[in-house]
Nucleic acid binder design. Structure first.
Lengths: 94, 94
DNA sequence: TAAAGTAGTTTATAAAATAAACCAAATTTG
DNA sequence: CAAATTTGGTTTATTTTATAAACTACTTTA
């Protein structure tokens, strides 16, 4: 029937973030912000949620004295994304 | 880049409703409730939203003296669903 | 050295989803 | 046959989520 769509991925911004991270090795905060056209605040919140779920890994370092946040997808995140896409097929392929 | 996902369809329940209505001529309230495993309250609210957007048509009649709510998708709804799926491909086909 | 910019985080607010409570009629049950 | 339950919903309240606004800390530039 209709399997639950992982609510963590069923959000426009988080889906876009994960989608980007699926296609690159890692991405910086500013890159994600630019690509997704999101505000920094919203991006920050959604990255935290994905990180807390273990879907992405966030590495906070410094570029000289500027903070530098780098994100990458985890195995768990890849699995979740794949599952999400499969579940979604069940909705739209009817 | 990342086109906006129609917020009216980007909801688990409404997507399931529209998905069902895409595959049948019409469906009764009770059938939709059973198929989507939703509560009557939630279903009622979401059907109203889809109806107000012109995505579905709701016909309220009586079966003897019991209310009978029958729903079907509209042309606008079909278009919106197709667009939604296309937009989504842009997210997941990366 | 004051103003503006960078790279974010935290907190507040708006919007959405969901649940709970309710209604009217019909049906079942003790 | 009268009370309790079920059916087919709607309305209202609550919770959750997404988003925006405000803030921090440091840096660059005029």
């Amino acid at each position: 029937m209709f399997k639950e769509l992982d609510p963590l991925l069923h959000s426009q911004l988080r889906l876009a973030i994960v989608s980007i991270l699926m296609s690159v090795d890692s991405a910086e905060f500013t890159y994600l912000k630019e690509q997704t056209q999101s505000t920094a605040g919203n991006l920050s919140v959604q990255l935290d949620k994905l990180s807390e779920a273990g879907y992405i890994q966030i590495d906070k370092s410094f570029n000289g004295k500027k903070p530098l946040t780098t994100c990458s997808i985890t195995k768990k995140g890849i699995k979740a994304f794949d599952d999400y896409v499969k579940t979604l097929q069940g909705y739209i392929k009817k």
